[in-house]
Amino acid sequence: MPMMQPAPTLVSLKGISKIFSNGVTALSGFDLDIHAGEFISLLGPSGCGKSTVLRLIAGLAEPTAGSVTWPGSRDSDHRGEIGFVFQDATLMPWANVADNVWLPLRLRGVSRRDAQDRIVESLALVGLNDFAKAYPRELSGGMRMRVSIARALSLKPRLLLMDEPFAALDEIARFRLNDDLLRLQSELRCTVVFVTHSVYESAYLSSRIAVMSARPGRVVAAIEGMPPGPRAEDFRTGAAYAQLCRRISQVLLDQTAEERP
């Protein structure tokens, strides 16, 4: 990414804390600015509240304290600008691939006929044109995740929220989807917030990494200045990638070491 003036802030989370009704404090003093066009990974141990951050951004949960704001926008309802991808593909088993992709549009009142072009377009983005009539159970795990991504893209979101989307996939499918995701992001120019606990995945994908502490979660370090150049097989096996992974792992280790008395 060329070095210019910093991109405008798309979403700003300030002083967020989240206490669940069972008394668990998931987040405390969480601050994060998400810049337009970036690929930011939230990296941290399991149960550190990464998913909660996504749910707060999407408006699926309310923070106990603090605020989630969209500085550049006057609308108060941003749900139409968000695509959400869960860890499981969470497709409707009774509907074929095309109808699954239709769901967000359908819920917004778009008829099947009006949505047809958008469905075809979304499926083309993830390379599944030939599977529009297939049912989810006929697809592999990687293909199901592609459908899930196509569904998230069907509303042409400005912000794509992904909650460990590839964690359940085998490595080959994951590498392929990693590359496809980066290609999609540069084609669609959307902002991605990507939750993961994999150092390697975050190093490969991100333009910025926010490292989170264990519960109660907050951002304890930001890793910027990613090595330039296209992400492809060469990068994955190259020295720059290995060095980056080492750097990220070190930050993660330092953080966990500080926390343990």
Binding site: R55, G59, L60, F84, F86, D88, T90, M92, P104, L107
Partner: peptide, 16 residues
């Protein structure tokens, strides 16, 4: 119904 599907519903179809 899958809980995540209900969340999707809330995201895209909840009343204004």
């Amino acid at each position: 119904v899958d809980r995540n599907l209900m969340e999707l519903f809330e995201l895209y179809g909840a009343p204004t």
